[in-house]
Amino acid sequence: MPPPEVVVETRNLTKVYRDFWGRRKVDALKALDLEIRRGEIFGLLGPNGSGKTTTMKLLLGLLFPTTGQALVFGRDATEVTKNERIGYLPEESYLYRFLNAEETLDFYGRLFNMPRKVRRQRVNELVTLVGLEKARKRQLKEYSKGMVRRIGLAQALINDPELILLDEPTSGLDPIGTRQIKDLILRLRDAGKTIILCSHLLADVQDVCDRIGILYQGELKELGRVDTLLTLRDVTEIRAGGLSDAAREEIKQVIERHGGAVVSVGNPTTTLEELFLGIIRQSEAHPGRRVRGVLAEQPGDGDGAVAAKP
């Protein structure tokens, strides 16, 4: 099977910010070579000032490259027509706060030249999708940060785009909203969309991304599949339930006998997100009752875990 079509490609993409007099101020991005293929979720990671947002803006044509080239769907990133197949959620939802949700989505729909009937249908779908049915007539200036984020995401999807660029999509959202957005991202991927994600929340990236690129001071330091990059090949993890201390001791001895070194022995922990969502689920199932034993329901309770190095 041939590899999927390349949706985004950068060749030696470089961006230098200059001051008013044209003097070199910051090398924001240095010779970035990247390929993102159809149907994948690609995460761009890096500390502040590493060039993530600059890369996004170059791909969107908001900035012009100093040298190199950014191609989206095989066309130059500064070409307007490529935007017909793109959805973009900026870092903060830069929307017109004097419009309400319906007007906002309708306005952006008109920018895609969508007929009125299609727009109306799409607005209804998206308002429902992002859970803003009750607030659809309220001006955005009355919205909470999370609500603005949701309507921002809805506008990014108004044209049913093939490529979606999400800059910090979960910032400002509560854990439930975060999970919903992550689930939505996965659903979009399953529907064949290509997603480029830029986030500081590493856990979010880890949860949803197929591949990641790590930028530091404008240079690409790492690129690859998440599962590949995160796998510790020289460490073996064994998980078992119902072991006594004697049994654990015996396992340690077996490992040492085979020349391995025990790295850690203990009970695994779940994530805070899982804990929080478990509490919420229980609270909704049993209103008014104190929540107990959420972790007991988690797989691995009372289990032991051993990690060993050969």
Partner: peptide, 14 residues
């Protein structure tokens, strides 16, 4: 300045 134009120019708007 408010960057509201970013969400406009990233649409197929000339």
């Amino acid at each position: 300045r408010n960057r509201t134009l970013h969400t406009v120019v990233t649409k197929p708007v000339r």
